[in-house]
Every structure is written in structure tokens, then in C-alpha cells.
Write a protein that binds this DNA or RNA. Structure first.
Lengths: 168, 168
DNA sequence: TTCCGTGCAAATCTTTTGCACGGTC
DNA sequence: GACCGTGCAAAAGATTTGCACGGAA
């Protein structure tokens, strides 16, 4: 069975890339933000945070569940319901970004702040999801945001097409 | 009950807008394209085409069903399954664009070619969906498309934020 | 007449909700 | 000890599929 929506490998070394985050881990940052927002600590949330922090790109809720189930003890798996609840909390605090690729499954990834800001390339054939950044694009969006009748808080850009493998 | 994902009215007269399409209707264009692709004519598809052609912005499958049910005869309603099937066909032929706003429902709208190309503003508070165009943005995307490892066929840009009404 | 397009109902699949238990504060 | 976080099971929605009929070619 073909597994769609896989994260494409590091294929973008020749494009401008975001600077890699240093110390204050996203995991730590997120943990603090959650505590500040009044959330208690919980095992499931902690594992989801750790997993997201280790990812290089967006994952669906089901993928997160599978990966946690592989690594963790079978006796106490993280339930899917918790994963959705946690992702919702994180998204509402702006700690994770939700991405819709048009495949019907939402993808989530750690929001690492300005230095981690990026967008995605989606291969409509195999579902590969590849991150990219482009400062010219960001400048254009920044200018545009001033002219639209919306108090812009965020933006999402997806380029659809055929990836190198699928474009035969 | 608040009805989310409604199309915001014509609120963008002061922003650069796309030129209005003249004669060869999208309905006609799409009908021809379907015939060329070997599809037979069918009542449900015809009604969906007509409805989409009359819309000013994206609609969900359920909204389309409701509107068709209101207008058409109760005796022979267009079934939701047909609507999904038809939207899929149209999307695969590039005749309609599928838009995911993050609300969990896919939106569809007539793809009117270059002159109808546009993007969307999404109010994360009330769900209002507003179309906009920006030629500078298109130029930037066009340039960018040359630099990424993807044979770009399309792009999707969504600005999230608070609309004029919701930003109190 | 052949075969496609459609409606209907049931099946899938993702995401959400209700509830009870166990851990955090 | 009070309450939140979590797992489990069931519910809710959106979308898809199986099947039989009726219309298009």
C-alpha cells in the first residue's frame, strides 16, 4: 500500500533554508507556554510535544499516533482522542501549525517562530510534502497584508505540482 | 446557529480585482471540456455546473446540495454522492478548485482560468471567506516556481486573521 | 441496446464527545 | 482533596462505495 502524505527527505539544500533553531528547544518553549497558559502537565501531551519537536516536517494525527505507539509501551498507548485534543490546544496557542494539503488529512507541525517559518510543496501524485522558505515571498506577503481588509495574523502558501520522482 | 464559511459580500472593490469573465461562460467551457473528456451529459452534473457558474465564491459540497435542493424539484433531488463524484471529476479536469480553509469542510469553486484566478482571506473567527487578487503576489509566485524542486501546476494562498467585523 | 450517470443506503474514515479513572498541583 | 488530563468507546460529520435503475448515445 502506498503511504501518502509522507514527508519528503531533505531535498532543499540548494534553496534558501530557515536557520536551524538553537538551544531553547521548541519542546521547552512549548512546555513553558502551556504552563503559563494554565495547563497541567500530562504524559500524553509530553510525548506528543517530544515527537513533534523531533519531526522535520508536518505529520497527520494518525501518523503521530502510529509513531507514538511504536516507540511507547503497548500497555499505555496514547489515545487518538488525546492526540486530537492536544493538537487542538497547541494550535489554539499558536504552538503548532495546521496544514491542509487537500488530501483530506490535516497535518500538524511545531511552530518554531520566525526562524522556523516556512511553506510547503505538495506533490499531487504521491502526496509528498516538502518545506521551503523564500524571503522574497515573505516580503511580498508582508506588503500585501497591509492592503487587505483583514487583520492578518498568519498566512499559508502551498504550491501544488509533481515532484521530481513523479514527474517521470 | 451561526453559519460558518459563508462567502463575504463584495468587500474588495478597493483592492485590485480580477476582470469579470465575458461570453464563453464557465458553464459552457466546462460542458465542452467534459464532453471532450468523454463524459456523457447528465442532469445532476448539469445542475452542479450551473450552480457553480452562478456562485461568486467557494461553496462546500453540503452547501451545494442544500442550494440545489431548494431550487430543484423535491421529487428528484441531486444526491450528495453525485455532488461529490461530480466535484471530483471537475477537480481532476482542473475545472474547479478545491480550497481547504481549515474548518474541516472542503470548498469548491469554478476555475475560470487566468482571468478568474484569485486567493482567499479567511476570518478565523466567523469563517468568512473573501476572494482577492494581487498581481505582485502572482509575479513573486511565478518567479519562485522556477526555483523549487516541483513541477508547479498550481498554488494556493490563504491569509488568516480577523475580518473587519470580528476585529471589534 | 449498451453503458454511463444517478439516487439511495450503507460503509469508511477522520475528528469529536461523554464518561470514569488516575495523576498533578 | 479538587480538578485536570487521559484512555476508551460511542457519536458525529464528511466523503466514498455498492448496487440497481433510467436516460444518453
Amino acid at each position: 500500500v502506498v503511504r501518502p502524505d509522507r514527508c519528503a527527505g531533505a531535498a532543499l539544500d540548494w534553496i534558501e533554508m530557515a536557520t536551524v533553531e538553537t538551544p531553547p528547544t521548541w519542546y521547552e518553549h512549548a512546555s513553558r507556554a502551556l504552563a503559563r497558559a494554565g495547563y497541567r502537565r500530562g504524559a500524553a501531551r509530553d510525548r506528543v510535544l517530544a515527537l513533534l519537536d523531533a519531526q522535520q516536517c508536518a505529520r497527520t494525527a494518525v501518523e503521530i499516533e502510529d509513531e507514538l505507539r511504536q516507540r511507547g509501551p503497548r500497555s499505555r498507548p496514547v489515545s487518538r482522542a488525546s492526540i486530537y485534543r492536544i493538537l487542538d490546544e497547541l494550535a489554539s496557542l499558536g504552538l503548532v501549525t495546521r496544514i491542509e494539503t487537500g488530501s483530506g488529512h490535516a497535518h500538524y507541525e511545531a511552530a518554531r517562530g520566525r526562524s522556523g517559518h516556512h511553506h510547503h510543496l505538495v506533490c499531487d501524485h504521491c502526496g509528498a510534502l516538502t518545506p521551503f522558505t523564500d524571503s522574497q515571498l515573505e516580503r511580498t506577503i508582508h506588503q500585501l497584508a497591509k492592503r487587505v481588509p483583514l487583520d492578518v495574523s498568519d498566512h499559508e502558501i502551498i504550491l501544488h505540482g509533481a515532484c521530481s520522482n513523479c514527474a517521470h
